[in-house]
């Protein structure tokens, strides 16, 4: 039975010396300057605004709904399938 209540255990190989160094450093103003990266960070983006025939529009929305994709991911998936970008 899983009785860990979802609590993440501290990995055994964590470097405790380094953790102590981090604590002392933070006390002296040497804090982490590296923000966590957003999970969906994609780098620079460009907008695309396009008018589609209704059938194409509906088909694209259905494709995204069926595959649980955002529109951005949907376009990306189609371009991967077409071989224009690598997965």
């Amino acid at each position: 039975m899983n009785d860990d209540f979802g609590i993440r255990k501290k990995p055994a190989d964590r470097d405790s010396t380094l953790e102590k160094v981090d604590r002392v450093a933070e006390k002296l103003g040497f804090a982490s300057r590296e923000g966590r990266k957003r999970r969906n960070a994609v780098g620079p983006t460009m907008p695309v605004n396009v008018k589609l025939p209704e059938d194409t529009y509906n088909a694209f929305l259905k494709f995204c709904d069926d595959n649980e994709l955002t529109y951005r991911k949907g376009i990306e998936k189609l371009l991967i399938k077409a071989g224009y970008i690598e997965e």
Partner: peptide, 14 residues
Amino acid sequence: LEGVASRLVARAIA
């Protein structure tokens, strides 16, 4: 190292 007080600096020093 970068010219700021950061954790990177502290770890490199260690």
